[in-house]
Design a binder for these strands. Structure first.
Lengths: 350, 350
DNA sequence: TTGAAAGCGCTAACAG
DNA sequence: CTGTTAGCGCTTTCAA
């Protein structure tokens, strides 16, 4: 690989002039000199070494991102969206790390990113315990949390860019209630995460507000300690069993994400329950396949593009203006009506 | 962030001793010295700066990876698998880039990775034109191609670790033939990629070998120039229309990947065609959701774990032994029988 | 308009 | 056993 020295030698100028040319300080030299440098760069097929540049400037054009698992398309999609805007708007790259929802892995990865000199990390912490995040923030890394509202207890330690989970749960439940369902269930994996807790709260809130009162049951399916989201479908599948054998079973169920909803529908079918005739289902995330499930899944869509844009803008804001204060950006989910929800049959209710 | 200097000062030794301690050359110093260094490291919460280390050693513990899009779970999963083994076995990270199946983006990303000093890039080139890969290889980057067999025309320019696409197509077609289907279709996006071409060849080969001969039709659905795999479902959905309106329609169809198969099944349903009664469907990839589609999708499973392991082993082999010769590692897909294929009804055939 | 020189944090001879 | 030293490739004053 040619270095800036090689270019300088070939163009018969000093390395500093090449550096100036590279960094747009072209007014500082004669047109003729600039052209000679350009020619040498072409000729040697020279590419500046970002690593060396970084050591000097403290800037590596890479954003970090921590997700539970890109095997879950909702994260895969967000990652693509963020990568795309970071690349197009700022020429930054995205280094995505899969945490498998394991605190130890998550902490280790954060440390790795720090030692790579990455200054901003986008995090779906997925864990209720966010001590390691605050710690990283203290080490000088800018954290941008998504999928989680700020913990109101403390002064804001870092940015939050997230969809309103409470509203997500609330809208989903209300859609079911509006269709006459009087017994609702919510399916989620065991283990506490802030966003799931929020969705649940919104769900319950909607049920409590309704007149007449709505019965709710929360179905928590146990999981292995750390999981890469591949088993989300199974979680839904198992929940279906619980629902099916329940003599006074719920007629409307919301799954805390689409992967679970897909497994849930399969499990319901297994028990000869028809969707939506026997039970209505709502998912969350609007992953691409939900358009093609049977029946097409009614789900909560997140404004992925808008969130990705805000996340990247904030990231670069922090990089360009070091002492920018943390802020909060809450996005509104929308209900995407497809065919997995229908009016409750009164005969099904006690 | 503390530097090695800070540690040295606190432990009252020279930076080189700290460096030695850091890099396992502990026999070179007294136990007592080592402990003092350890203590200083702990106390300052010191983490070595990988960037500076890299500039010296030329080694950044990161592997690059180019995929069409992690929004497609088959790539998302592979990425997770590779990241996990790279991390566990060698403490390497994975930098995943989404090419959106666009040659220009793909080339630009390769250059970026090179200028980051990344030495090995795992590539699903997805494009028939692989000139930029050979070029990168010439620039000193080690390429590991997956999902593609070597182009036999040239001397092997880089490693190939891939599932046998020809066999994949062949096995899928044969499964349908064994179930008595006499008119088969293959659905794929327009645009040539080596692996898709191979799958098609295997499919056609199987049909030609059969007695009596099998009728085949290839359905190519046009796509936008570059696409992030999100629209794969739509491709299948459109293909279903073509199949449905065909008066002498195929009774068995293989989709070139699962996302397309899922869209295809939805489209077939739209036309009141039942699966597998009216048409049998086989997918490829075995992405997690295929277990829960309706009906559960029969598909070709790839040995993801084994491939991920080989890919990472080869990557580090090249890093540790610079002049390792390129080699070829072909993996065997297996047919995963679920419920989207049934025996052909003879009444359906002319 | 251009070049010389110092230094980012670390490693690896080599000397002591 | 430990320290001194010379860079890795680049940027950035500062001087010419």
């Amino acid at each position: 690989m040619p270095t800036i020295q090689d270019v300088a030698r070939l163009a018969r100028v000093s390395p500093s002039s090449v550096s100036n040319a590279l960094n747009g300080r072209t007014q500082r030299m004669r047109q003729e000199t600039f052209e000679r440098i350009q020619k040498a760069i072409k000729q040697l097929n020279y590419q500046p070494n970002q690593i060396a540049r970084h050591l000097k400037t403290g800037q590596l054009p890479i954003l970090g991102m921590l997700v539970p698992s890109t095997a879950n398309p909702s994260f895969g999609e967000l990652a693509v969206a963020i990568e795309s805007v970071a690349q197009k708007m700022y020429n930054y790259r995205l280094l995505v790390c899969n945490t498998q929802r394991d605190t130890a892995i998550e902490s280790a990865m954060l440390n790795d990113l720090i030692s790579l000199g990455i200054k901003v990390v986008i995090v779906n912490s997925s864990l209720a315990d966010t001590a390691h995040l605050s710690l990283a923030a203290k080490k000088g890394v800018t954290i941008i949390s998504y999928d989680t509202r700020p913990d109101s207890m403390t002064p804001l330690p870092y940015d939050h860019v997230y969809p309103d989970s409470h509203m997500t749960g609330w809208l989903a439940a209300n859609h079911l209630i509006a269709h006459g369902h009087q017994h609702l269930a919510l399916v989620k994996p065991a283990g506490r995460t802030i966003s799931r807790h929020e969705k649940t709260a919104g769900f319950i809130h909607a049920a409590h507000m309704a007149r007449p009162k709505i019965k709710t049951t929360i179905i928590e399916v146990p999981t292995t300690q750390s999981y890469g989201d591949t088993e989300l479908g199974k979680i839904g599948f198992e929940a279906a069993h619980e629902i099916a054998i329940n003599p006074s079973r719920p007629t409307g169920v919301v799954a805390i994400n689409d992967m679970i909803a897909i497994g849930l529908m399969a499990g319901l079918r297994q028990h000869n329950l028809q969707i939506p005739r026997d039970v209505s289902v709502i998912g969350m995330d609007n992953i691409p396949t939900t358009e093609f499930t049977w029946p097409p899944l009614t789900t909560m869509a997140m404004p992925v593009q808008a969130m990705a844009t805000t996340i990247v803008e904030r990231a670069l804001q922090h990089i360009q203006t070091p002492h920018t204060l943390p802020d909060v950006f809450c996005f509104t989910p929308t209900l995407l009506e497809r065919q997995s929800v229908s009016t409750a049959l009164s005969s099904h209710e006690g």
